[in-house]
């Protein structure tokens, strides 16, 4: 087993073990904290496909996170009020159906945004993805049917067959299960033919084109897959808080996802998880002491960028090897 595999295993085991310990000690709050870590890690793992493997610095992934969140909120509201949604279709309070809807909605949005924004690169790509996300953000604010600026409450957490999702431990296991599936998907993708083309495009897009692979199509598919995973995380996040608001769509959220990846390690399998652990623990430990806790996070981020480019995973496991 190489060092990175060991680091990955420890991070995942740590995330899985902590809530059991907290639950045994009767501290459900810590279970919720671990759930938050798992969901943010899943959202950032989605972004890691575009940003880490493809080098596509999307500053608009909050759009997909928020779209997933609103998919959950809107479907749940319609199910709760027993009002049909569209063309007589009912809402639903089943998580699995909601996830599928979140994946479809985020994927569609990413296809449209990607078709336009992937024609640019570098700082233009960053700005155009930001612009699209902000458009959706302002749309959500001005859409009174689903709460507008005030957001949308989900009165009862959505259901998953065979378990009571209101129990913190049950919901944690659902979120952790999806995170593990997301990490497995990322690992398979990275080592596949598609992953090879995507990563080659990040390193040198002229080389990719010169062997006969058009970078645009590879990147578009990667962008859509990336958005789908972040969309599922958004649906979970809505269920965690039982609340969706336009803030899930704001550029702060996009920035937060990028920060998680940089903290943890860009393009590394467990980078987003490591980043989410550091971020949420920081927020928890310092957030109670000072509302300016992000100042200290900024200092940590500065140190990572200056002295530890590989993030937490790079620090613990050394440089990435590509075989």
């Amino acid at each position: 087993m190489n060092r990175e595999t060991l680091v990955n295993a420890l991070l995942i085991l740590g995330l899985l073990a902590a809530p059991f310990a907290a639950d045994a000690m009767g501290e459900p709050f810590y279970v919720t904290l671990a759930t938050r870590i798992a969901i943010l890690a899943l959202a950032a793992t989605g972004l890691n496909i575009a940003l880490g493997l493809g080098g596509l610095v999307s500053f608009g992934h909050a759009a997909f996170f928020g779209i997933g969140g609103y998919a959950a909120g809107i479907l749940a509201t319609h199910a709760f009020n027993a009002e049909p949604l569209l063309f007589g279709l009912p809402g639903t309070n089943q998580m699995v159906s909601i996830w599928l809807a979140a994946v479809a909605a985020a994927g569609m949005a990413a296809l449209l945004i990607g078709l336009i924004s992937l024609r640019t690169s570098g700082v233009y790509f960053i700005m155009i993805t930001l612009a699209f996300a902000q458009m959706i953000y302002y749309f959500a604010i001005s859409w009174p049917a689903y709460g507008g600026e005030d957001g949308l409450s989900i009165y009862v957490r959505n259901a998953f067959p065979g378990t009571n999702t209101m129990r913190p431990m049950s919901f944690f296991l659902i979120a952790a299960g999806l995170l593990l599936a997301g990490l497995a998907f990322f690992a398979l993708l990275r080592n596949s033919r598609f992953g090879a083309a995507l990563q080659a495009g990040r390193q040198n897009e002229i080389r990719l084109a010169a062997v006969g692979i058009a970078p645009f199509r590879i990147r578009l598919v990667a962008f859509v897959l990336s958005a789908m995973m972040t969309g599922v995380a958004g649906a979970l996040f809505a269920d965690l808080n039982r609340f969706v608001s336009p803030s899930m769509l704001s550029w702060h959220m996009s920035g937060e996802l990028i920060v998680l990846i940089i903290l943890g390690g860009v393009g590394r399998l467990a980078g987003p998880l490591a980043g989410a652990i550091v971020y949420v623990l920081f927020e928890f430990a310092l957030g109670g002491v000072t509302e300016h806790w992000q100042l200290f996070l900024g200092l940590v981020l500065l140190c990572v960028v200056l002295f530890a480019r590989g993030g937490v995973v790079g620090l613990l496991a050394g440089r990435a090897r590509h075989g």
């Binding site: 398979l188 993708l189 596949s192 033919r193 992953g195 090879a196 590879i218 598919v221």
Partner: peptide, 11 residues
């Protein structure tokens, strides 16, 4: 012509 394969490891 097989860059859209997502799961089988290349190595």
């Amino acid at each position: 012509g097989s860059s859209f394969r997502f799961f089988r490891p290349v190595m």
